[in-house]
Design a protein around this nucleic acid. Structure first.
Length: 867
RNA sequence: GGGCGUUUAGCUCAGUUGGCUAGAGCACCGCCCUUACAAGGCGGGGGUCACUGGUUCGAGUCCAGUAACGCCCACCA
């Protein structure tokens, strides 16, 4: 073994071994209970970012532990076809060659995308392998593969038959750059300085004008009314009159509608039913004409008269200057407001009247809310449930059609002869009216439509497969809060509607990975850490540990190079510790298939009892999805107790005491073995490597049984051993007495009679002192004392230090003890405390006070005796 | 306009039924190349737990309010 750990070589070696051994398949534990997680499918276009690295590390930890616990653990991998994102990428490539998708035509373009996917679609899986993800590749799926496409079609047809899928003319969010409709949540609202323009609309009867306020003057070209609130006294006379729309000189009515706010602007609003959702509603109520004034390119249509063909923002200025010329602008005010942008390309969204397919969500919502309310599904942390409820309760119908070519094509055919719409599982050849002139809908479905089916479609649904029966519902979903609405809520709705069961009982929500200043990592900001580069430099285990350590439940995760480097140093520590155990302590006969020492010595019983409580603490925390807490406990135990205290104690046993040495080394091996197992879920590579060195090279840690150990009682002397050793070390350190100088120590008082021999020899080897049992020195001047856990020991100062140099140390100790006493007395002197606090708390406090008081008395005597 | 989160050591953060003298990593100071690891060991300094009030025998922890920062949602055009 090398003196430093080389992750690159080790990590490259183990992944294929695991994969070829079949360990990633649930069949590796044929009799185990099923445990399953479906991966949040990354976009095929994508490359892994640190957010994936965290998300995957968490899932891998859960899966690897369950696998070791004997479950038939399935982590199902796959990717999402990512409609808009992927189409955009391929279109961008085409553009480099001076082409658009229209030059190729639909069929060829889609072929091109598949070709692109074949070429670069395995980037993700290569990267996942580098992270160590133990996914079952034999079950890998793609949202656009044959099986999932069949599931999508079945769901579409069923929803249509149930009346939950319909086509309608509505105001939708249109991206003029992507040329498609978007759903509400694909629109990101951003603050915009904005201006509110007050425009005068003259009454046709010559009785003056009404002033309306708008942030989008260009939409006046599509105005078909002015609306005021029915109770607004300022406009009582105006209702029923008509005004002349400036520029276009169209006569439009003034209508009364409750939706108009008194306070905003002038209290009168221009109504553009084809370009604003609120205006659309008003238009419906008053039967207003819908004039489309802006087209799918965001240019003014012929309805816009002189502005036809002009871009919407140019038109805004043009309209405004024309109105100014006509002296119809009353004023322009600054008006900060928020403007919707396409979440894909950031273009300003155009609300557009358009014929689209919608999912009627209301009937799906109730059961999805109920499942969380009644505890079938629980969020971790719980507070996300409120966001989930709030969002669900305010849902509007889901626009699912997209004007793209890459995606599941909508299975609807239209008959031009009779106007019939046919939606069916099989492609129809003729209409019920006998016409064979059927036209298939050109649009595809929102990518999230297929993602919503992911937990059951990937397992074979709608077929009743063995996997579906066995692994659905899945056990837990792990994802970021940013896609609760996009994905989690929709999986709940679809899962319950189509299978009758919520897709998962637990939803583990994690935060976003951020840089050390708390900023979101992004390429453009230049603060993004590339997980693959970190893996290359520090190893996947280091990245995983650093991410998990920082991932407190429900909070964002600050990631810095330093934290990854600290994790790497821990790996190196582990590496060297095991190397020492194997090479220098000669520990090789470890029972790798389980088993614990039957007759441990006192130090062994101590570390085994600690191991036992740490293992159950780790289990408890992992069961509660508190991953960072679990590994913090383990990390501290491994570093400071096993590979520090215990390893140091194990070193001290001499070859002469071969019986004791044998047991201790065996214990060291067993504890090391279990520490490796407990760490395996978070640091799979290094633990697998070390496992191979610790054992005889047969068997893998990935499928080794999770630790489960008998109870051991720690010897009572450990507290005084650690305490006295620390005190002597402190004495050495403060007086700068090198380790080579032996310190004679007389141990005089013991709590329960004589201290055992091992206690003395451990103190000697841990501190370089030579402790001996004896009487209190007389005279005591010239000695200093140390105390811990009822044990008292004297150190002669002659030849070591000047007596005066020791005084400050004692004085400081006295001051600390006095402070403790003051606090403790304050509590105990309070009658209410004695009356109302639980008896055990009071008792503990009394014991504590007695202890401190005794120590204080000792230290005071000691100070006086120093001479 | 609603809702949520955060505020603890110089930095990044733990601290889950309220109860020993509030912890870790990094950074800092001193000593030590002791049979693994100097990427290490030992020891040390450093905190009025944002502020105000309340509940309680007892509050970093529970409640109310304030402030700062951050996030999400929202059809006042």
């Amino acid at each position: 073994m090398n003196q430093t750990y080389q992750p690159e070589e080790v990590e490259a070696r183990w992944y294929p071994v695991w994969e070829e051994s079949g360990s990633f398949r649930p069949e590796v534990n044929p009799d185990g209970e099923p445990y399953s997680i479906v991966i949040p499918p990354p976009n095929v276009t994508g490359v892994l970012h640190t957010g994936h690295a965290l998300d995957h590390a968490m899932q891998d930890i859960l899966i690897r532990r369950k696998r070791m616990q004997g479950y038939a653990a399935l982590w199902l991998p796959g990717t999402d076809h990512a409609g808009i994102a992927t189409q955009n990428v391929v279109e961008r490539e085409l553009r480099k060659e001076g082409m658009t998708r229209h030059d190729l035509g639909r069929e060829q373009f889609v072929e091109q995308v598949w070709a692109w996917k074949a070429k670069s679609g395995n980037t993700i899986s290569t990267q996942m392998r580098k992270l160590g993800d133990s996914t079952d590749w034999s079950r890998e799926r793609f949202t656009f593969d044959e099986g999932l496409s069949a599931a999508v079609r079945r769901v579409f047809v069923t929803l249509y038959d149930e009346g939950l899928m319909y086509r309608a003319n509505r105001i939708i969010n249109w991206c003029p750059r992507c040329h498609t409709a978007l759903s509400e949540i694909e629109v990101e609202h951003e603050d915009d300085p904005g201006e509110l323009t007050y425009i005068k609309y003259p009454f046709t009867d010559g009785s003056g004008h009404v002033t309306v306020a708008t942030t989008r003057p260009e939409t006046m070209l599509g105005d078909t009314a002015v609306a005021v609130h029915p109770d607004d006294e300022r406009y009582t006379d105006a209702i029923g009159k008509t005004v002349l729309l400036p520029i276009l000189n169209r006569e439009i009515p003034v209508v009364a509608d409750d939706a108009v706010e008194h306070e905003f602007g002038t209290g009168a609003v221009k109504v553009t039913p084809a370009h604003d959702p609120l205006d659309f509603d008003i238009g419906q109520r008053h039967d207003l004409e819908q004039i489309i004034a802006i087209d799918t390119e965001a240019r003014i249509t012929e309805a816009g008269g002189p502005y036809v063909g002009m871009d919407r923002f140019e038109a805004r200025e043009a309209v405004r200057s024309k109105l100014r010329e006509l002296e119809l602008i009353e004023k322009v005010e600054e008006h900060p407001h928020s403007v919707g942008h396409c979440s894909r390309c950031h273009t300003v969204i155009e609300p557009l009247l358009s014929l689209q397919w919608f999912v009627k969500v209301q009937p799906l919502v109730g059961p999805a809310i109920e499942a969380v309310k009644n505890g079938d599904t629980t969020f971790h942390p719980r507070r996300w449930e409120n966001s989930y409820f709030h969002w669900m309760e305010n849902l509007k119908d889901w626009t699912v059609s997209r004007q793209l070519w890459w995606g599941h094509r909508i299975p609807a055919w239209y008959c031009d002869a009779c106007g019939e719409t046919i939606v069916s599982m099989d492609d129809p050849t003729e209409c019920t009216c006998g016409s064979a002139e059927l036209r298939r809908d050109e649009d595809v479905l929102d990518t999230w439509f297929s993602s919503a089916l992911w937990p059951f479609s990937t397992l074979g649904w709608p077929d009743e497969t063995d996997d579906l029966a066995r692994f659905y519902p899945t056990n837990v979903l792990v994802t970021g809060f940013d896609i609760i609405f996009f994905w989690v809520a929709r999986m709940m709705k679809m899962g319950i509607h189509f299978t009758g069961e919520a897709p998962f009982p637990h939803i583990l929500i994690h935060g976003m990975v951020r840089d050390i200043e708390g900023k979101k990592m992004s390429k453009s900001a230049g603060n993004a850490l590339d997980p693959l580069e970190l893996v290359d430099e520090y190893g996947a285990d280091s990245l995983r540990l650093a991410l998990i350590q920082a991932a407190a439940p429900g909070h964002d995760i600050p990631l810095s190079i330093d934290s990854v480097d600290a994790a790497r140093r821990f790996g190196n520590k582990l590496w060297n510790a095991v190397r020492f155990v194997v090479e220098f302590m000669d520990v090789t006969d470890v029972p790798m298939d389980g088993g614990y020492p039957d007759h441990p010595g006192p130090e062994d019983a101590w570390i085994l009892s600690r191991l036992g409580s740490v293992a159950s603490e780790v289990d408890r925390l992992l069961d509660e999805y508190r991953l960072s807490g679990a590994f913090a406990v383990l990390y501290n135990f491994a570093w400071s107790e096993v590979f520090d205290w215990y390893l140091e104690m194990a070193k001290s046993i001499s070859d002469a005491d071969s019986g004791r040495q044998k047991v201790m080394r065996q214990t060291l091996g067993v504890v090391t073995r279990d520490v490796l197992k407990l760490f395996h879920p978070v640091m799979p590579f290094i633990t697998e490597e070390l496992w191979s060195h610790l054992g005889d090279g047969s068997g893998l840690i990935i499928t080794a049984p999770w630790p489960s150990l008998p109870t051991y009682d720690a010897p009572g002397e450990m507290a005084s051993l650690q305490g006295v050793a620390s005190e002597i070390r402190q004495f050495r350190s403060q007086h700068q007495i090198g380790r080579k100088i032996e310190i004679p120590v007389v141990v005089t008082t013991t709590p329960d009679g004589a201290l055992p021999v091992w206690w003395y020899s451990q103190i000697a080897s841990l501190t370089g002192a030579s402790p001996k049992p004896g009487q209190r020195p007389d005279p005591v001047a010239g000695y200093t004392r140390v105390f811990a856990a009822g044990v008292e020991a004297y150190i002669p100062l002659a030849g070591l230090i000047d007596v005066d140099a020791e005084r400050p140390r004692i004085e400081k100790a006295i001051a600390e003890l006095e402070a403790g006493i003051a606090k403790s007395k304050g509590k105990l002197d309070n009658a209410n405390f004695r009356d109302r606090a639980p008896a055990d708390v009071v008792e503990r406090e009394e014991r504590r006070l007695a202890e401190i008081e005794e120590q204080l008395a000792n230290q005071r005597d000691h100070l006086a005796e120093l001479g």
